[in-house]
Simulated scan of single mutants.
Amino acid sequence: MDFGGITFTFAAIFLGAAVFASIALYTRQPIIIAYIILGAALGPFGTGLVSNTALVSDAGHVGIIFLLFLLGLDMQPKALLNSMKSSSWVALASSGIYIAIGYAITRGFGFAHNDALLVGAALMFSSTIIGIKLLPTTVLHHKHLGEVLVALLLFQDLIAIVVLVWLQSSDTGTSVIWSVARPLIMLPLLAMGCWAAVRFILIPLIARFDRYHEYIFLLSVGWCLGIAELAALMGLSAEVGAFIAGVAVATSPIAQYIAVSLKPLRDFFLVIFFFSVGAQFDVSALPNVAAAAVVLALSFLCLKPVVYQMLLRGVSESPKLAWNLGFRLGQCSEFALLIAVVALESGRLSPTAHTLIQATTILTLLISSYLVVTRFPTPIASNDALRRD
């Protein structure tokens, strides 16, 4: 048997996920935690049963792309722009505060200046996946809380893109000004191109062949992944490209049919994503950074709700909404893992600091998802009273 083949890899992931998810549900724990623990158990730093982490990571990335595409399908452009305007300064101010907190704590544990700065930069973002997946669909698409949360996450994603582009461009000698300006220039160009393509190509095709469900499915998947790749070529992220692709189709009557038909595909790849988060973590290196990771994780989990509560009340949001959103965004982001890899490969981040970012991010993902699932309405709540689709 080929233990490194794609069939064995997926079989191990989904058979293991079924077992671990059953245990999680019986013990009334968040199901996402089961996927992450499974990754650590079967990954190369655990039993080594699943060793092809590159395949798993790439497949998991597809899940994030589909998640953002489906989110865009339910977002009206006008409402999104209004939310972005009111949330932009909140995202900027909070990011600055979180960088300072991460830098100060990391320096306090004896890390070098550059390491501490990159740790702070990596940990300032909140997880798009956790934030969106744990929000009920009715709240996400039809309530003000959903609009504000999405706007904040998208603005953070743009900041993360700037950080990643800067890290990658510095190796090639690209101007720092251009590396920062490029995403801001390319984003509206991509949006206008998507709008034109939807109006003059996609809508006529859908109107002509809408009775062929298989064709609509293929067209939707091709549009999502094609625009995601185009965005990556333009210096943006594939996630942002997928979201714009979804928003561009949102005004079409077929948008809801596309959203329903792609949800099982999204969930398939998201299981792989959470598995890959656990599989990439080297448990043996944890003792070297355990104390710093615990302090960083608890600091962000405790301070993020407070910071968001203060900043959102400054833009006239209600205290209840601010606290709710603050807890839902209390974790660190999957972007932290990506920034850590890029910074390590470029020689700007030490291996110990890389492990610290991984450990802190995984801790916040685990604890934050547990807090949200047990205290707030979510689609996967273990308590029937809190379960909302």
Rank of each mutant, 00 (worst) to 15 (best):
T355M: 10
G226S: 11
H142Q: 05
S169E: 09
R328N: 10
F209L: 06
L164H: 06
H61K: 12
R348S: 11
A11M: 10
I36S: 02
S316G: 09
T138Q: 07
S369F: 03
R266Q: 04
N324L: 13
V307S: 08
F376T: 11
A231I: 14
R388I: 14
D157N: 14
R28Y: 07
V50S: 02
A59Q: 02
A359L: 09
S252R: 01
I36T: 12
A297D: 04
G48S: 04
G222W: 06
S346A: 15
F327Q: 04
A232W: 07
R388H: 14
A93E: 13
K85T: 12
S333I: 15
G278D: 06
P351M: 08
L140P: 05
A100N: 05
R208Y: 06
G314M: 08
I244E: 00
T352E: 13
L70Q: 03
G326Q: 05
V260T: 10
T128R: 04
A116H: 10
I272R: 03
V295T: 09
R211S: 13
A385Q: 15
R28T: 15
Y103K: 02
Q256T: 13
F8L: 07
T174A: 11
R107F: 13
L262I: 03
C224K: 00
G173E: 14
L321T: 13
I37V: 15
N288D: 06
F111I: 11
S350I: 15
G120V: 12
D58F: 12
I6H: 07
A112I: 15
D2V: 15
V277E: 02
L301R: 01
V19R: 05
D210A: 08
A160F: 13
K143E: 12
T53P: 05
G4T: 15
S83P: 10
T360L: 08
T9K: 00
S382C: 11
P204Q: 00
C302H: 07
G4A: 09
A242D: 04
G120K: 09
L225D: 11
L38H: 00
I254R: 01
I206K: 00
L154I: 12
T172Y: 14
S88L: 12
A293V: 10
G278W: 04
L73V: 07
L303I: 10
D2I: 14
V249H: 00
A248M: 00
S252F: 08
F376N: 09
L71F: 05
N82T: 13
L298D: 01
A322N: 00
V289H: 02
A18Q: 06
P319V: 08
I105D: 00
V289N: 03
P204N: 01
G131D: 08
G16I: 08
P379K: 06
S88M: 11
V271W: 03
A238Y: 09
A24E: 00
V56W: 03
I97D: 13
Y215S: 14
L190D: 04
A207P: 09
I339A: 04
A238D: 12
K320T: 15
S87E: 00
I258Q: 06
I362R: 05
K133E: 01
I31N: 07
D282M: 15
L218S: 11
L298N: 01
L15K: 05
T106F: 14
W323K: 12
Y26I: 09
T251P: 02
W323G: 08
